[in-house]
Measured scan of single mutants.
Amino acid sequence: TTEYTFTDDEEARRAIEELKKRGLTFRYEKHGTTWRVRVD
């Protein structure tokens, strides 16, 4: 499991789109302004 942290909404959304394109399994949660994206 790899975890990424983003504080920029645009950056987080781009990363999420990219992961979807690659067909990877991931989860994300947003805490205030911080996004945590975990890739299995």
Score class of each variant (00 low, 15 high):
E17S: 09
E29C: 13
E18D: 12
F6S: 00
G23H: 04
Y4L: 11
I16D: 00
T34D: 04
A15F: 15
A12K: 02
D9T: 05
D9E: 14
E11M: 09
F26G: 02
A12C: 11
E3D: 06
E10F: 09
L19W: 10
K21M: 08
R14P: 01
L24E: 05
V39T: 03
Y28W: 13
K21Y: 06
T34G: 06
T5D: 04
T2N: 07
E17I: 09
Y28D: 02
D8P: 01
I16W: 02
G23W: 02
R27Y: 14
E11F: 04
K21S: 09
E11V: 08
W35M: 03
K21N: 09
V39D: 01
V39M: 04
T7D: 10
R22M: 13
E18L: 10
R13P: 01
T1D: 08
R27E: 12
E17K: 10
D40P: 08
L19K: 00
F6Q: 00
R22V: 06
R36Y: 15
T2R: 13
W35N: 02
Y28H: 03
T34V: 14
E18Y: 12
T33Q: 11
E29M: 07
T2H: 12
E17A: 12
R36K: 14
T33I: 09
T7N: 11
D40M: 14
E11I: 07
A12G: 04
D9V: 10
V39R: 00
E10D: 12
R27Q: 14
T34P: 00
D40V: 14
H31T: 13
E18R: 06
T2F: 13
T7G: 05
T2K: 11
H31D: 14
T25P: 09
E3H: 07
R38W: 15
R14K: 12
T7M: 09
E3F: 14
F26S: 02
H31F: 11
T33P: 07
I16G: 02
F26N: 00
T2M: 13
F26P: 07
E10M: 10
L19E: 00
K20T: 12
A12Q: 01
Y28E: 03
R22L: 14
K30M: 05
R13M: 14
L24Y: 13
D9Y: 13
T5Q: 06
T7H: 12
R13W: 14
R22W: 09
Y28R: 01
E10L: 10
R14M: 10
R36I: 15
T34R: 05
K20W: 07
F6Y: 10
K20H: 08
L19Q: 00
T33V: 08
G32D: 06
T2G: 05
A12T: 03
Y4G: 01
A12R: 02
R38F: 15
A15W: 15
T25G: 06
T25E: 07
R27A: 12
T5A: 05
R22S: 11
T33R: 07
G23P: 02
R27G: 06
I16F: 05
E18I: 11
K20L: 12
T2W: 15
K30T: 04
T5Y: 14
Y4P: 01
D8N: 14
E29G: 04
D40F: 15
I16C: 05
A15C: 15
T33G: 14
D8G: 05
E17G: 07
T2P: 04
T5I: 15
